[in-house]
Simulated scan of single mutants.
Amino acid sequence: MRVLVTGAAGFIGSHLSQRLLARGDEVLGYDNLNAYYDPRLKQARLDRLLPLEGFSFVQASLEDRAALEAAFDEFKPQRVVNLAAQAGVRYSLENPQAYVDSNIVGFLNILEACRHRGIEHLVYASSSSVYGANKKLPFAVEDSVDHPVSMYAATKKANELMAHTYSHLFNLPTTGLRFFTVYGPWGRPDMALFLFTRKILAGEPIDVFNHGHHTRDFTYVDDIVEGVIRTLDRVPGPDPTYDPLHPTPASSTAPYRVYNIGNHQPVQLLRYIEVLEECLGRKAERNLLPLQAGDVPDTYADVSALQRDTDYSPSTSIETGVRRFVDWYRDFYGT
Protein backbone atom coordinates (compact mmCIF):
# COMPACT_ATOMS: atom_id res chain seq x y z
CA MET A 1 0.00 0.00 0.00
CA ARG A 2 0.90 3.67 -0.24
CA VAL A 3 0.66 5.07 3.28
CA LEU A 4 1.10 8.71 4.28
CA VAL A 5 2.46 8.92 7.83
CA THR A 6 2.37 12.32 9.51
CA GLY A 7 4.80 12.81 12.38
CA ALA A 8 7.19 10.40 10.63
CA ALA A 9 10.24 11.89 12.38
CA GLY A 10 8.50 11.48 15.72
CA PHE A 11 8.89 8.68 18.23
CA ILE A 12 6.02 6.43 17.16
CA GLY A 13 5.95 7.65 13.55
CA SER A 14 9.55 6.68 12.83
CA HIS A 15 9.07 3.18 14.27
CA LEU A 16 5.82 2.76 12.32
CA SER A 17 7.39 3.93 9.07
CA GLN A 18 10.18 1.37 9.43
CA ARG A 19 7.69 -1.44 9.99
CA LEU A 20 5.55 -0.44 7.00
CA LEU A 21 8.60 -0.22 4.74
CA ALA A 22 9.87 -3.59 5.99
CA ARG A 23 6.68 -5.28 4.84
CA GLY A 24 6.85 -3.65 1.40
CA ASP A 25 4.59 -0.60 1.70
CA GLU A 26 5.50 2.77 0.20
CA VAL A 27 5.62 5.51 2.83
CA LEU A 28 5.50 9.27 2.52
CA GLY A 29 6.70 10.81 5.77
CA TYR A 30 5.35 14.24 6.65
CA ASP A 31 6.76 16.21 9.59
CA ASN A 32 7.62 19.82 10.40
CA LEU A 33 10.64 18.88 12.60
CA ASN A 34 9.63 21.55 15.11
CA ALA A 35 11.66 22.46 18.18
CA TYR A 36 9.22 21.30 20.88
CA TYR A 37 12.08 18.98 21.78
CA ASP A 38 15.60 18.55 20.35
CA PRO A 39 15.25 18.56 16.53
CA ARG A 40 18.55 16.68 16.31
CA LEU A 41 16.85 13.59 17.70
CA LYS A 42 14.06 13.95 15.13
CA GLN A 43 16.64 14.33 12.39
CA ALA A 44 18.50 11.24 13.62
CA ARG A 45 15.29 9.21 13.42
CA LEU A 46 14.64 10.58 9.94
CA ASP A 47 18.18 9.79 8.83
CA ARG A 48 17.46 6.10 9.47
CA LEU A 49 14.45 6.25 7.14
CA LEU A 50 15.74 8.34 4.25
CA PRO A 51 18.00 5.65 2.71
CA LEU A 52 15.25 3.00 2.77
CA GLU A 53 13.60 1.96 -0.48
CA GLY A 54 10.02 3.16 -0.74
CA PHE A 55 10.41 6.13 1.64
CA SER A 56 10.04 9.78 0.71
CA PHE A 57 9.68 12.83 2.92
CA VAL A 58 8.03 16.26 3.03
CA GLN A 59 8.93 18.82 5.69
CA ALA A 60 5.84 20.89 6.46
CA SER A 61 3.20 21.48 9.13
CA LEU A 62 -0.34 20.12 9.26
CA GLU A 63 -1.53 23.71 9.53
CA ASP A 64 -0.03 24.42 6.08
CA ARG A 65 -3.03 23.28 4.10
CA ALA A 66 -1.47 23.95 0.69
CA ALA A 67 1.63 21.89 1.50
CA LEU A 68 -0.46 19.07 2.95
CA GLU A 69 -2.77 18.89 -0.06
CA ALA A 70 0.22 19.01 -2.44
CA ALA A 71 1.72 16.04 -0.59
CA PHE A 72 -1.55 14.11 -0.94
CA ASP A 73 -1.85 14.96 -4.63
CA GLU A 74 1.73 14.01 -5.49
CA PHE A 75 1.95 10.80 -3.44
CA LYS A 76 -1.68 9.67 -3.86
CA PRO A 77 -1.85 7.66 -0.62
CA GLN A 78 -4.37 4.88 -0.18
CA ARG A 79 -4.34 5.10 3.62
CA VAL A 80 -3.21 7.71 6.11
CA VAL A 81 -1.83 7.47 9.66
CA ASN A 82 -1.94 10.82 11.45
CA LEU A 83 0.56 10.84 14.32
CA ALA A 84 1.64 14.48 14.00
CA ALA A 85 0.37 16.60 16.86
CA GLN A 86 1.46 19.04 19.51
CA ALA A 87 2.21 16.59 22.29
CA GLY A 88 2.57 17.00 26.03
CA VAL A 89 0.06 17.52 28.82
CA ARG A 90 2.13 20.02 30.81
CA TYR A 91 3.12 22.20 27.87
CA SER A 92 -0.59 22.62 27.06
CA LEU A 93 -0.93 24.67 30.25
CA GLU A 94 1.71 27.11 28.96
CA ASN A 95 0.91 27.31 25.26
CA PRO A 96 -2.67 26.17 24.51
CA GLN A 97 -2.68 27.96 21.15
CA ALA A 98 -0.12 25.49 19.78
CA TYR A 99 -2.59 22.68 20.46
CA VAL A 100 -5.41 24.39 18.62
CA ASP A 101 -3.15 25.10 15.63
CA SER A 102 -1.73 21.59 15.25
CA ASN A 103 -4.33 19.32 16.80
CA ILE A 104 -7.52 21.08 15.68
CA VAL A 105 -6.72 23.13 12.55
CA GLY A 106 -4.13 20.61 11.40
CA PHE A 107 -6.45 17.66 11.95
CA LEU A 108 -9.24 19.38 10.06
CA ASN A 109 -6.85 19.77 7.12
CA ILE A 110 -6.12 16.04 7.29
CA LEU A 111 -9.83 15.20 7.31
CA GLU A 112 -10.51 17.48 4.34
CA ALA A 113 -7.60 16.06 2.36
CA CYS A 114 -8.80 12.50 3.04
CA ARG A 115 -12.42 13.35 2.25
CA HIS A 116 -11.72 14.88 -1.15
CA ARG A 117 -9.30 12.17 -2.27
CA GLY A 118 -11.23 9.04 -1.44
CA ILE A 119 -8.78 7.77 1.19
CA GLU A 120 -9.57 4.15 2.13
CA HIS A 121 -8.85 4.55 5.85
CA LEU A 122 -7.62 7.26 8.22
CA VAL A 123 -6.00 6.03 11.43
CA TYR A 124 -5.14 8.78 13.92
CA ALA A 125 -3.57 9.11 17.34
CA SER A 126 -5.86 9.90 20.21
CA SER A 127 -4.66 9.54 23.79
CA SER A 128 -5.42 7.95 27.14
CA SER A 129 -5.59 11.56 28.34
CA VAL A 130 -9.17 11.77 27.05
CA TYR A 131 -10.28 9.76 30.11
CA GLY A 132 -9.43 12.80 32.21
CA ALA A 133 -11.14 12.79 35.58
CA ASN A 134 -12.60 9.29 35.12
CA LYS A 135 -12.11 7.09 38.20
CA LYS A 136 -13.48 3.75 36.98
CA LEU A 137 -10.57 1.45 36.13
CA PRO A 138 -9.67 0.01 33.72
CA PHE A 139 -10.58 2.72 31.17
CA ALA A 140 -12.81 1.22 28.49
CA VAL A 141 -13.61 2.69 25.07
CA GLU A 142 -17.29 2.44 25.97
CA ASP A 143 -16.83 4.89 28.88
CA SER A 144 -17.83 8.55 28.70
CA VAL A 145 -14.86 10.86 28.06
CA ASP A 146 -16.49 14.22 28.65
CA HIS A 147 -14.26 15.49 31.47
CA PRO A 148 -10.75 16.21 30.16
CA VAL A 149 -8.33 17.88 32.58
CA SER A 150 -5.86 19.42 30.10
CA MET A 151 -6.06 21.27 26.81
CA TYR A 152 -4.07 18.46 25.21
CA ALA A 153 -6.74 15.95 26.25
CA ALA A 154 -9.52 18.25 25.04
CA THR A 155 -7.97 18.48 21.57
CA LYS A 156 -7.65 14.69 21.36
CA LYS A 157 -11.28 14.27 22.35
CA ALA A 158 -12.12 16.87 19.70
CA ASN A 159 -10.25 14.80 17.11
CA GLU A 160 -12.49 11.83 17.84
CA LEU A 161 -15.60 13.99 17.44
CA MET A 162 -14.33 15.53 14.22
CA ALA A 163 -13.42 12.12 12.81
CA HIS A 164 -16.90 10.80 13.59
CA THR A 165 -18.46 13.75 11.80
CA TYR A 166 -16.49 12.99 8.64
CA SER A 167 -17.21 9.27 8.92
CA HIS A 168 -20.91 10.06 9.23
CA LEU A 169 -21.22 12.80 6.61
CA PHE A 170 -18.75 11.58 3.98
CA ASN A 171 -18.43 7.84 4.68
CA LEU A 172 -14.72 8.26 5.46
CA PRO A 173 -13.52 5.22 7.45
CA THR A 174 -11.66 6.43 10.55
CA THR A 175 -10.06 4.69 13.52
CA GLY A 176 -8.87 6.56 16.61
CA LEU A 177 -6.21 4.98 18.82
CA ARG A 178 -5.91 5.97 22.45
CA PHE A 179 -2.23 5.41 23.27
CA PHE A 180 -1.23 4.73 26.88
CA THR A 181 2.17 6.16 28.05
CA VAL A 182 4.41 5.00 25.21
CA TYR A 183 8.11 4.39 25.92
CA GLY A 184 11.09 2.72 24.29
CA PRO A 185 14.17 3.35 22.10
CA TRP A 186 14.19 6.68 20.21
CA GLY A 187 11.63 8.00 22.72
CA ARG A 188 10.68 11.58 23.51
CA PRO A 189 13.02 13.61 25.76
CA ASP A 190 10.05 15.21 27.56
CA MET A 191 8.78 11.83 28.81
CA ALA A 192 9.62 10.50 32.27
CA LEU A 193 11.86 7.60 31.24
CA PHE A 194 14.10 9.82 29.12
CA LEU A 195 14.24 12.58 31.76
CA PHE A 196 14.98 10.14 34.57
CA THR A 197 17.72 8.35 32.62
CA ARG A 198 19.49 11.57 31.70
CA LYS A 199 19.39 12.94 35.24
CA ILE A 200 20.39 9.71 37.00
CA LEU A 201 23.42 9.32 34.73
CA ALA A 202 24.32 12.97 35.37
CA GLY A 203 24.01 12.50 39.13
CA GLU A 204 21.12 14.96 39.33
CA PRO A 205 17.92 14.47 41.38
CA ILE A 206 14.74 13.42 39.56
CA ASP A 207 11.35 15.06 40.13
CA VAL A 208 8.89 12.37 41.23
CA PHE A 209 5.36 13.76 41.12
CA ASN A 210 2.52 12.50 43.33
CA HIS A 211 5.34 11.09 45.51
CA GLY A 212 5.59 8.28 42.93
CA HIS A 213 2.28 6.73 43.95
CA HIS A 214 0.40 7.17 40.70
CA THR A 215 0.20 4.29 38.24
CA ARG A 216 0.63 4.26 34.47
CA ASP A 217 -0.13 1.67 31.84
CA PHE A 218 3.36 1.92 30.31
CA THR A 219 3.25 0.56 26.76
CA TYR A 220 6.33 -0.42 24.75
CA VAL A 221 6.63 1.27 21.37
CA ASP A 222 6.81 -1.96 19.33
CA ASP A 223 3.49 -3.02 20.85
CA ILE A 224 1.97 0.32 19.92
CA VAL A 225 3.20 -0.03 16.33
CA GLU A 226 1.79 -3.55 16.04
CA GLY A 227 -1.58 -2.23 17.21
CA VAL A 228 -1.45 0.62 14.68
CA ILE A 229 -0.71 -1.80 11.83
CA ARG A 230 -3.42 -4.25 12.89
CA THR A 231 -6.01 -1.47 12.91
CA LEU A 232 -4.69 0.15 9.71
CA ASP A 233 -5.24 -3.13 7.88
CA ARG A 234 -8.80 -3.45 9.21
CA VAL A 235 -10.98 -0.83 7.51
CA PRO A 236 -14.04 -0.22 9.72
CA GLY A 237 -17.60 -0.32 8.51
CA PRO A 238 -20.81 0.58 10.33
CA ASP A 239 -21.14 -1.33 13.60
CA PRO A 240 -24.12 -3.71 13.18
CA THR A 241 -24.50 -3.94 16.97
CA TYR A 242 -24.61 -0.17 17.54
CA ASP A 243 -27.74 0.87 19.45
CA PRO A 244 -28.57 4.60 19.16
CA LEU A 245 -30.76 4.28 22.25
CA HIS A 246 -27.66 3.22 24.22
CA PRO A 247 -24.83 5.02 22.38
CA THR A 248 -21.15 4.26 22.92
CA PRO A 249 -18.19 6.50 22.04
CA ALA A 250 -16.39 3.44 20.62
CA SER A 251 -18.39 2.82 17.43
CA SER A 252 -21.25 4.10 15.33
CA THR A 253 -23.62 3.54 12.45
CA ALA A 254 -20.82 5.30 10.50
CA PRO A 255 -17.50 3.59 9.54
CA TYR A 256 -15.85 4.71 12.78
CA ARG A 257 -13.97 2.98 15.61
CA VAL A 258 -11.95 3.93 18.68
CA TYR A 259 -9.55 1.56 20.47
CA ASN A 260 -7.28 1.63 23.51
CA ILE A 261 -3.70 0.48 22.93
CA GLY A 262 -2.14 -0.12 26.32
CA ASN A 263 -0.25 -2.83 28.17
CA HIS A 264 -3.29 -3.44 30.42
CA GLN A 265 -0.92 -3.89 33.38
CA PRO A 266 -0.59 -0.62 35.32
CA VAL A 267 2.71 -0.10 37.14
CA GLN A 268 3.34 2.26 40.04
CA LEU A 269 5.83 4.99 39.13
CA LEU A 270 8.10 3.98 42.04
CA ARG A 271 8.40 0.46 40.57
CA TYR A 272 9.17 1.93 37.14
CA ILE A 273 12.00 3.94 38.71
CA GLU A 274 13.31 0.83 40.49
CA VAL A 275 13.49 -1.07 37.18
CA LEU A 276 15.33 1.85 35.60
CA GLU A 277 17.81 1.96 38.52
CA GLU A 278 18.47 -1.76 38.07
CA CYS A 279 19.12 -1.30 34.34
CA LEU A 280 21.43 1.70 34.91
CA GLY A 281 23.20 0.19 37.90
CA ARG A 282 22.68 3.46 39.80
CA LYS A 283 20.29 4.77 42.43
CA ALA A 284 18.25 7.91 41.84
CA GLU A 285 18.10 10.85 44.19
CA ARG A 286 14.35 11.51 44.37
CA ASN A 287 12.71 14.90 44.74
CA LEU A 288 9.18 13.95 45.87
CA LEU A 289 6.51 16.40 44.74
CA PRO A 290 2.67 16.62 44.64
CA LEU A 291 0.62 15.68 41.58
CA GLN A 292 0.92 18.26 38.81
CA ALA A 293 -2.02 20.20 37.36
CA GLY A 294 -3.40 18.42 34.30
CA ASP A 295 -2.09 15.00 35.35
CA VAL A 296 -4.29 12.10 36.43
CA PRO A 297 -3.45 9.70 39.28
CA ASP A 298 -3.89 6.44 37.36
CA THR A 299 -4.26 5.02 33.86
CA TYR A 300 -5.20 1.45 32.98
CA ALA A 301 -6.30 0.30 29.54
CA ASP A 302 -9.13 -2.13 28.88
CA VAL A 303 -8.00 -3.55 25.51
CA SER A 304 -10.81 -6.05 25.04
CA ALA A 305 -12.17 -4.20 21.98
CA LEU A 306 -8.73 -4.21 20.31
CA GLN A 307 -8.27 -7.88 21.13
CA ARG A 308 -11.75 -8.76 19.85
CA ASP A 309 -11.35 -6.98 16.50
CA THR A 310 -7.63 -7.48 15.74
CA ASP A 311 -6.71 -10.54 17.84
CA TYR A 312 -3.93 -8.51 19.43
CA SER A 313 -3.02 -7.00 22.79
CA PRO A 314 0.31 -5.54 23.99
CA SER A 315 2.43 -7.74 26.25
CA THR A 316 6.01 -6.38 26.61
CA SER A 317 7.00 -6.13 30.29
CA ILE A 318 8.60 -2.97 31.68
CA GLU A 319 11.64 -5.04 32.65
CA THR A 320 12.21 -5.88 28.98
CA GLY A 321 11.15 -2.51 27.58
CA VAL A 322 13.17 -0.33 29.97
CA ARG A 323 16.28 -2.46 29.39
CA ARG A 324 15.95 -1.94 25.62
CA PHE A 325 15.54 1.79 26.12
CA VAL A 326 18.61 2.03 28.36
CA ASP A 327 20.69 0.02 25.86
CA TRP A 328 19.60 2.40 23.09
CA TYR A 329 20.21 5.52 25.21
CA ARG A 330 23.73 4.47 26.21
CA ASP A 331 24.58 3.66 22.60
CA PHE A 332 23.04 6.82 21.11
CA TYR A 333 24.50 9.26 23.65
CA GLY A 334 27.70 7.31 24.36
CA THR A 335 27.16 7.19 28.14
Rank of each mutant, 00 (worst) to 15 (best):
T215Y: 10
N210K: 04
T299Y: 07
L111I: 04
P51W: 04
L137V: 01
H164V: 03
E53L: 07
R282N: 01
S129M: 11
D309S: 09
A133T: 11
V208N: 12
A98R: 10
N109P: 01
R188H: 15
V3S: 09
W186F: 13
V130G: 05
S56W: 02
H214I: 00
I104Y: 02
L111P: 02
I104H: 02
R90V: 02
S252C: 04
F180C: 13
V326K: 14
Q97G: 09
K136F: 01
T310S: 15
V123I: 11
L232A: 12
V322K: 08
S61T: 13
Q43W: 06
V228A: 10
T215D: 07
N32I: 02
D233A: 14
D302M: 05
L195M: 15
L111Q: 06
L245R: 06
Q307C: 11
T155A: 09
V221D: 02
G184K: 09
I200N: 13
D217S: 07
Q86A: 13
D309K: 05
Y259L: 06
I261G: 08
V258A: 10
Q97R: 13
D25G: 02
A293R: 05
I318N: 14
T241E: 14
Y333P: 07
Y37G: 09
L108C: 10
N32H: 08
T155K: 07
A70T: 12
E278R: 15
V81S: 11
L161M: 14
